[in-house]
Design a protein around this nucleic acid. Structure first.
Length: 416
RNA sequence: GGUGGGGUUCCCGAGUGGUCAAAGGGAGCAGACUGUAAAUCUGCCGGCGACGCCUUCGGAGGUUCGAAUCCUCCCCCCACCA
């Protein structure tokens, strides 16, 4: 790989350029280290069977590493998940059983495989493999000795929790994560750990542990906390998290999430969540006014393609264009089927709106209609009990809309 | 274990016998304005074929014509002390 090395941009610059880097340990040495193939890792919590958009940053970072010729390790925290990382969080996490964690880890691997090539060096490990068998006394003697409680208490990650209460099990989290790093260093020659900036203290604890026990240098790279321009956490909406699993968040909804990106975030997100060349990213970022929608379409399409594949991305885009622009196909749009017999009689609008999942209750549907926010084929529905019947079918479907963005295609169910 | 303070609708947080489905703020939703963006203004914001009915104020009982509000027991949380 060194053949084209001269022309290649250093990974660190790639990451920095794209907005991945918040802080690093001693940059000169890190930079030197990364000139040759290096093993690096990021830990992921198996607290669910799917990643959500918030995990895309570390996943992309690992992918960039592999593209640059390094070996990425995705470490599933099967052991640490049984404890719960207190970093930055105000409440203790609920503990999971081994079975749940195992099942979750399987789901995560499938998703990671879209970004990492496990046949070409990338590894998926589970720290339960070495943490669960630890002997307490030995651990205290070998690892515990290297930690100063005073320093741990000074760590930002523990400071907040000190005010509300931090229990002993959580207090040990830093030691275990440091031990993970040491283990990976010993068995896989891993020298770099990456993670969110809230992990800084934990990562550096590992770096120090390696230096003290092995006399070797290891490094840390942390990512900035990614929030939207208005301060919301990435991937969280009022409806819940945006998942990568298509069974939890449909490709259409996933695509819509990105289309609705706030203007000031577009360029930053293109850098973080796509592999588009930065020249192209900056070019798209320069678009202004309504033209910036074009950049959002590129963003939405690219991210959806990475996560769900080309075909699904196209279908999501088609459905989006069909519902919002006209033209395009409705195949993948949200759909609700009703019994044709009921359409002959007619279904009250507020009932149908609720059934189609456009409102949470019938009462909400009534209010929506009352406020003029419910539409039938683009026309406001006038009264809450207006009957929707077969005569409302157009091209075999009825298009309902709640507000500006929530659509549903009503289809008569086929007898079969 | 002791003492004191708490658990209210998605979140924060008022409310100490009726006027409470419960102030205020946030979040969310809709309309206007727009570009499927942001900001702003206005309205909505437990459920129900609905000017009424039903279910909510940690849980279970009780007092009362009437309880989120009073009493009893229980559960949980926090602070200080041990």
């Amino acid at each position: 790989m060194e053949a084209e090395g001269a022309a290649m941009i250093h990974v660190l610059d790639v990451l920095r350029d794209r907005g991945f880097v918040e802080q690093t340990t001693d940059e000169a040495n890190l930079r030197e280290l990364l000139r040759s193939p290096t093993t690096c890792y990021i830990g992921f919590d198996p607290t669910a069977s799917s990643f959500h958009v918030g995990s895309l940053v570390p996943i992309m970072a690992l992918a960039h590493m592999q593209r640059a010729g390094h070996r990425p390790i995705a470490l599933v925290g099967g052991g640490t998940a049984m404890i719960g990382d207190p970093s930055g969080k105000t409440e203790m996490r609920r503990l999971l059983t081994r079975d749940q964690i195992e099942a979750n880890a399987q789901g995560l691997k499938v998703q990671l495989a879209r970004f990492l090539d496990f046949d070409d060096g990338a590894l998926l490990l589970n720290n339960a493999d070495w943490l669960l068998g630890l002997n307490y006394i030995e651990f205290l003697r070998d690892v515990g000795v290297h930690f100063s409680v005073n320093r741990m208490l000074a760590a930002e990650s523990y400071r907040q929790r000190l005010e509300t209460g931090l229990n002993f099990i959580e207090f040990n989290y830093m030691l275990l994560q440091a031990y993970d790093f040491l283990h990976l260093f010993r068995h896989f020659g891993c020298r770099v750990q990456m993670g969110g900036n809230d992990q800084w203290g934990n990562i550096v604890a590992g770096v120090e542990l390696i230096r003290r026990t092995e006399g070797q240098a290891a490094h840390a790279i942390t990512f900035p906390l990614i929030t939207t321009a208005s301060g919301a956490k990435m991937g969280k909406t009022a409806q819940g998290a945006i998942w990568l699993d298509p069974a939890l968040t449909s490709p259409y909804d996933f695509y819509q999430y990105w289309i609705n990106t706030e203007d000031p975030d577009v360029e930053r997100f293109l850098g973080l969540f796509t592999f588009l060349p930065m020249d192209r990213v900056r070019e798209l970022g320069r678009l202004e006014g309504a033209a910036i929608r074009e950049a959002k379409e590129v963003l939405a399409f690219e991210v959806t393609r990475l996560v769900h594949g080309e075909a699904e991305a196209r279908r999501a885009r088609d459905a989006s264009l069909a519902l919002f622009g006209g033209g395009g196909r409705l195949d993948k749009a949200p759909t609700h089927e009703v019994d044709p017999a009921r359409l002959v009689e007619g279904i009250e609008a507020f009932v149908l709106l609720h059934e189609a999942g456009l409102t949470k209750s019938r009462g909400e549907a009534r209010r929506l209609i009352g406020q003029g926010g419910a539409y039938l084929h683009g026309e406001p529905i006038r009264s809450f009990d207006q009957r929707i019947t077969v005569t409302d079918l157009k091209d075999g479907v009825i298009l309902l809309r709640a507000g500006k963005k929530k659509h549903c295609v009503i289809r008569p169910a086929r007898e079969g």
